[in-house]
Design a protein around this nucleic acid. Structure first.
Length: 314
DNA sequence: AACGCCACCAACCGCATACAC
DNA sequence: CGTGTATGCGGTTGGTGGCGT
């Protein structure tokens, strides 16, 4: 349990790498492999510590590194995995080929975290925040509406906004169901599931609620279900699943949503249940506390939960 | 043009874990 | 089994460039 000695004890160079240093490191590793990182700098003729060399290689020089902007798909994957794994950057990175944990961590801290906060979600829990500051974006949005409202009859505005919100909510939710249809087929096994899907057209949807009557479902544009989904819907009438439309957490994960939709009103349920210490496989890990341990909500898409990931969180 | 502010990201630091002896 | 070393990991820092004033 000892600690490795500090790198700069012997006047070793720190700071940004020069192209010459990069070239030396690449050349050496291509010829000999990295072997012992501690011995490598001397062998490669670098005035750096082994740790610095390792980081430079793994985060920058490795040939299989994918650089450039994160795609929408990658962004969703990170959001999804982070809601399950927390700040386990290396674990998240294993599901994003070519991306390093450092890169993902930076992307999270500079983009995704802010995005969630702006939307009023706690970036650590992925749940809607209830404190005063979290309400600021909504309050500002409301303030911006004031001007609009002052110049138009209030009722007319309210009805119009309500109608638009209802349309948007329905479209986005339906879109979500369709996009994840193939992965849900294993879970969509019951008449209950069928009912859950049909709830979009009912007048009892707790999400859409009373506005359903004023916005007939038939007003929505035609949306085609994937064949595989329709087939499974027609054939699967098995046992119950946990799929539940009453818990629509993290709706911004809709992949092609132009902008993240707001959290659904009136239905705020946990996206994941706290996990007890005993359910975590690695009790020695300081990150494996209940604050990090999470299980996915039934609402979350399953498509990214590959088998190795289940083992990680099991 | 000069300055300040801010976002981004490479690199560092320190702790935890794995493993050899 | 205890100790020391190597490596992995996550949090943080600091340099840099873009942008607005």
């Amino acid at each position: 349990m000892g600690r490795s000695p500090c790198c700069d004890e012997n006047g070793l160079k720190k700071g940004p790498w020069t192209p010459e240093e990069d070239q030396r490191l690449v050349n050496y590793i291509q010829r000999h492999g990295h072997g012992s990182w501690r011995a490598l700098p001397k062998l490669a003729g670098l005035n750096r510590c082994g740790k610095s060399c390792r980081l430079r290689w793994t985060n920058y020089l490795r040939p299989d590194i994918k650089r450039g902007k994160f795609s929408q798909e990658e962004e969703q994957t990170i959001l999804h995995l982070h809601s399950i794994l927390g700040n386990k950057w290396s674990a998240i990175a294993t599901h994003l080929p070519g991306r390093t944990d450092n890169e993902i961590k930076n992307f999270w801290n500079t983009h995704l975290k802010k995005k969630l906060i702006q939307m009023g979600f706690d970036p650590m829990t992925h749940q809607p925040r209830t404190d005063l500051f979290s309400s600021l974006p909504q309050l500002i949005a409301l303030a911006n509406l004031r001007d609009l409202i002052e110049h138009h009859p209030w009722e007319e505005q309210a009805v119009r906004l309500q109608a638009e919100a209802a349309q948007l909510a329905k479209l986005q939710y339906l879109q979500y169901l369709i996009q994840n249809a193939s992965s849900m087929t294993s879970n969509l096994n019951s008449t209950k599931d069928m009912e859950d899907l049909n709830i979009l057209g009912s007048t009892h949807n707790p999400i859409l609620g009373s506005i359903q009557d004023s916005i007939p479902f038939s007003h929505l544009p035609d949306l085609k279900l994937p064949c595989s989904f329709q087939t499974s819907m027609n054939s699967d009438m098995g046992q119950n699943s946990n799929f539940n439309v009453d818990t629509p957490q993290s709706p911004w994960l809709l992949s092609s949503s132009p902008s993240p939709p707001p959290p659904p009103p009136s239905t705020v349920l946990p996206a994941f249940a706290p996990v007890t210490e005993t359910s975590i496989s690695n009790p020695g890990d300081s990150c494996s506390t209940s604050s990090y341990g999470r299980v996915p909500s039934p609402f979350w898409p399953e498509l990214l939960l590959e088998e190795p990931l289940f083992h990680e969180i099991a």
